[in-house]
Every structure is written in C-alpha cells, then in structure tokens.
Design a protein around this nucleic acid. Structure first.
Length: 600
DNA sequence: GCCGTTTTCGGCCCGACTGTTTTCAGTCG
C-alpha cells in the first residue's frame, strides 16, 4: 500500500523526498523482523526507522478501521489499473500510467492481458516516447512475467550453488578472468535465491563480458554494458555479472554482496562522515589524509577516488570492522559495528562456523524398523564412515518410529530392542572409526499431543527427537498444546523442523511461538535448525528470536543418505544469518557434554 | 515524510543501462 501511495505521489508530481520516504518505509517494513501488527499493539510503530509521526498514525488507522482515508484519497486520483502493471519488470509508475491513459486500460483485473493484446496489435509504438523497441521489450516482459507467475519460484540455495559452480567453471576458462566471486544473496547464504550475482576481477572487461554473454546455456541477453551484463537461462534464472579491475575489487565485493538495505544504511552512515561510497571506492568532499582512513597508497588522483583492493580495507576506511556477509541485512549489524568501533560491548558476534560442528543427531539409517514414514538409504556403517570424514565426534541415528497401526505394543518393543542390539554390535565390531553413537528416534507427535509409541518402547533409545508429520491445519492453540505436550516427555529433547515449512510448497503451521519459546527455554529443550535444503527450518529470523529467549539450538541434516551429511553447511548458514554464536548451538559441544544434556 | 553527538532546518545512497531524447527520463538493484 505504501508503494502504491508512493507511485501515486510520483504521478501527482509531489515532492521527490516524500516519495522516497514512502518507499523507505515500505522497505523497512518488508525487512522488519517483527510483525507490524505486534508493534502497533505495543504502540511502538515508530520504532521502525523511516516510520515517523505521520505514517504511524496512518498505519494505526489501517489496523483500527481496515483502511486509511488519506491513502484512499490519494489512490483515487490515479487509475487503479497501473498497479498490476508496475509489477512487470521494466514498467514503473510513469510508463504504466502512460500506457493506461493512452490505451484506455481501465480494468485492473485484466490489464496485463489487455496490454499484451495491445502490444501484439502494434498500438504501443504509436504512443509518444515509446517506439518499436519499447513495444518489443514490453511484449517480451509481459510474456515472461505471465510465465513466471505460473511457475513462480525462487531457487533453493543448494540449486543456485550448483548452477553457480557451473558458470564459474565456465568463466574461469577465459584467460582474462583473474578471479570470479559469487556475490549477492548467494554470498549472504539466503535460503532462497532470486538471481545469481557474479563479480569478475579483470583488466580486460570487454572480452570478459563478451565471454559471459556467450555462456552456452544462455536463453537471452537481458542487458549488456561496459560494467557488466545480465543473461537469462532457459528456466528463467537471471545471472548478473559485474567486472572491475583488481584495484577496486574491495568496494565491488562490498557493493555487490548487498543486501540493498545494508548498502543504503552503510552509505547513509558514511555520508554523515563526509564520505560518499560506491562500487568504485570512496569519494570525500575534502582531501582526507591516508592515515585517517587507516590505509596507505590507495588514492587515485585522476578520479579523486580512494580505491580498495580488499573488502576489509573498505570497511576499515569508514571506521568499521568487517561485517560477515550473512548478517548484512540492515538488522542492526551496522549499529553494532559502530558500537564495536567505539569500544562498546557487545560487538559483532563471533558467528558459529562449520568447523565448530562436532556431530549430527538427526540422521535416518536404512535399518528397517517398519516405520510409517520413509527409511534412510545408508547403513549405520556407511553413516559412521561419512561422519568420520567430517571429523565428527558423534552422531545420532533418529529413524522414524515403527508404524503403530501395523504393530502391537509387543511387536514395537521387540523391533526397538532388535535395532538397539544391532547398532551396538556394529559399534563393538567397528574398528575404523571413533565416532560415537547415540541411539535415537524421530517420534511423531500425534494431533492430540500424545507420542506415537508406547512408553515401553523408549527404553531402547538414549533420547529422541519429536516432530509433526500430520494434521498441519490445527489452530494456533491446539498446535501449541500439541507440541508442548509432545516435548514434555523426559527423553524428548529436540523439536525437529519446528515450523513444518517446505520452501515453495507448504507454509509452516500456526503456532504460539512465544509460548513455545518460553517452554523450551524453561525445560531445556532444544529446537532444531534443519539443514535439508527445502526446509531450512527454523528460519534465520526465528533463530535470532530463539537466541533472545536463551533457547538451545541444534543444527541437524535430517539426512536420508550418507551423502546428505554435507548439507550441514546450509543449516550453519541459517544459524549464522540468525547471529548464532558457537555456544548457542549444542552440537558444537563435546561428546561428554552433549551426552550429559541428552541424559538430563 | 523522516531525521539529528557538528543540524529541529535542510538535508535525504549511488550508479548502470536502455530508449528516446538532442541532453535526459525512467527503471532497476
């Protein structure tokens, strides 16, 4: 709504900075880690930067009455049909308004198709300031927009990384390419990736750009210039390339890593110190001596520009410590970095690293205990061997519980007993590894909150994980009661894939999170960060919340195959994005320490 | 409209690319 008002203001010729203020408020709300409605209820709307007296009163009105009289008055002065058009790449408020007016497009529900037909009939090129090329571009953009709406999807991080490997290998074949870096949301390790951003250091930009746009899997060249280019692959994925000389690489890496909001906030901060930041370096109004920037010999006299080959030096020049890419989201990292530079604690967190991880407690083996869900594909021996390669101290095998409908209580207990014995024999005879084993289980929490197995069955496990695999549609209260009840068993230590989301397929279920956090915090239950690429569950923002509640977190892979143990890096990425430190994550603990916790 | 350890007035991130202009406007990230 704020964006629509902003567009309307633009068309009505209002002050440019008022328009920007609305855009900024919209950005900040989108980027906010707390719900706007919660803030409103606490009367703290203007705790969001960019929302002041006026906007918070408008938003209060929205929450109270469902609409804002002032917004409606503004929006009624522009044709509504422009707003759907503004979602189409290449069309902004001005072009959308010109098209709607000239072609008399009134109906906002059909405007996309109406414009498409008009383009096909050749009516756009007749409008002033539009030409043949614009018409062609708009037509193509409309078609691909409709296409993408149909199979609308962002890439999973894992998918994006595999495409990126391919194109990076291709780029490296060009001898002018000195180095190539995956940047943007990829470098920040966001769970889903919109487009792929690459930077290349080179002294011969033209040849590198020509090479890039000749990538074999390219569907079309979206744009091409002196500084870079954009191509689109067959599946609609866009790849942006920027090229620059090594002398300016530091500022390019910084700029192209983003996020957009981080960069804006950083530039605003620097500007107050008289420094103007860009991907090329830093410009200052008056000549600053090198030592004031903390850097030597980086002043380019011809361009009146300070250049930085290293990203660390770029941050240092602004007076800040280097900020890890995963937390560059304008969620407080700049303020924290400023405080750190002033010697005020706590500074930026020392984020958990992949090498800190000492084990993985959510792994499915191929031992057939006749479960209601899927078995794993690898044997315990294979899993131990894989864990050994990662230098793990321990793993936990958390197979799905035996199906209840097909077995009597006695059957279940004998299956569980057999499995325990089988695992213990393997461990006893396995001389190849010192990886220790926890015999665990992943137990369904049934809709009424009871656990799937009878009490006697838990005698044969060290501890177990609980999770929800059915009845996702319970209401908030029922679902929260259910999970808390399930977690209340003494041996239930971990809540697995806590939101139940499947990225792009299923939203998480309704849950009273503060109540669950409070329970887990008090009862010392751990919440899982599930590393499975389409789960990534908890999300980064919820990791931050859980840490604020002093909840123990554990990063598991939910592997169904020994090769999936390597997915741990995705869960670690989520944890890092949520500002998790080593000791927020319990599988950084030694075997003894985690063993004690499991037995608690 | 928002915001403030140099400001309650006077600023507001910065640059690339495209198409249509004849020096720039619109859009994007």
């Amino acid at each position: 709504m704020l964006r629509q008002v902003s567009a309307a203001y633009l068309l009505l010729g209002k002050d440019k900075f008022k328009i920007m203020a609305y855009e900024k408020a919209a950005d900040q709300i989108e980027n906010s880690t707390v719900s706007l409605k919660d803030l409103w209820q606490q009367n703290k709307l203007n705790s969001i930067p960019g929302i002041g007296k006026m906007l918070s009163s408008h938003l209060s009105e929205l929450f109270q009455t469902g609409q804002v009289v002032h917004f409606e008055a503004i929006l009624s002065q522009v044709p509504r049909a422009i707003f759907p058009l503004m979602d189409v790449p290449g069309l902004g408020p001005k072009k959308a308004a010109a098209l709607v007016k000239s072609l008399n497009l009134q109906k906002k529900d059909t405007v996309i198709n109406d414009l498409l037909q008009a383009a096909k009939r050749g009516e756009i090129e007749k409008i002033g300031h539009f030409g043949k090329k614009s018409q062609k571009e708009i037509l193509e953009s409309l078609i691909s927009y409709r296409q993408r709406l149909k199979n609308k999807k962002r890439l999973l991080l894992s998918q994006a990384l595999s495409i990126t490997d391919e194109i990076m290998a291709y780029m490296k074949k060009n001898s002018s390419v000195k180095a190539v870096y995956p940047l943007g949301s990829l470098r920040r390790m966001v769970s889903t990736i919109g487009d792929i951003d690459l930077a290349v250091a080179t002294e011969d930009p033209t040849s590198v750009i020509d090479w890039f746009v000749s990538f074999p899997k390219k569907e079309k060249i979206v744009e091409k210039g002196n500084a870079g280019a954009t191509i689109m692959l067959e599946d609609g994925t866009q790849i942006d390339l920027r090229v620059q000389s090594g002398r300016q690489l530091g500022s390019l890496l910084q700029y192209f890593t983003g996020s957009k909001n981080h960069n804006i906030a950083l530039r605003e901060y620097a500007l107050k110190k008289g420094m103007s930041l860009s991907e090329y370096g830093i410009k200052t109004k008056k000549r600053i001596r090198n030592y004031e920037l903390g850097i030597k010999n980086n002043y380019n006299k011809q361009l009146n520009l300070y250049e930085f080959a290293k990203e660390e030096d770029f941050y240092q020049a602004i007076g800040l410590p280097w900020i890890p890419p995963e937390i560059r989201e304008d969620r407080g990292e700049i303020e924290t970095a400023i405080r750190q530079a002033q010697g005020i604690l706590p500074g930026l967190p020392s984020l958990v690293k992949l090498s800190d991880i000492k084990g993985d407690l959510h792994i499915h083996s191929n031992y057939d205990l006749e479960p209601s869900h899927d078995l794993g594909e690898s044997s315990l021996e294979e899993l131990l061997e894989s864990a050994h390669k990662f230098n793990y101290e321990y793993i936990g095998i958390s197979d799905h519980n035996p199906s209840v409908s097909n077995h009597s209580i006695n059957d279940i207990c004998s299956i569980m007993k057999r499995r325990k014995k089988h695992f213990e024999q393997i461990i006893a005879s396995n001389k190849n590894t010192r990886v220790k084993l926890f015999i665990m289980l992943e137990v369904d929490i049934l809709p009424d909150g009871s656990l799937a197995l009878p009490e006697e069955a838990y005698e044969y496990v060290d501890a177990f994980i609980v999770s929800v695999h059915s009845s996702f549609k319970l209401n908030k209260i029922q679902m929260t009661d259910r999970i808390i009840k399930g977690l209340s068993h003494k041996k239930a230590k971990i809540l697995a894939h806590p939101t139940g989301r499947l990225i792009g397929k299923r939203e998480g279920y309704e849950l009273d999170w503060p109540r669950l956090y409070n329970f887990c915090s008090g009862e010392k239950k751990a919440i899982e960060i599930n590393s499975y690429p389409d789960r990534m569950d908890l999300s980064d923002i919820m990791v931050t919340q859980a840490i604020e509640w002093k909840i123990k977190l554990i990063i598991n892979t939910d592997s169904h195959n020994s090769s999936q143990l390597r997915n741990m890096k995705y869960g670690v990425a989520v944890a890092r994005r949520g500002w998790a430190k080593k000791y927020d994550i319990i599988n950084t603990y030694s075997y003894d320490k985690i063993s004690n916790w499991l037995a608690m």
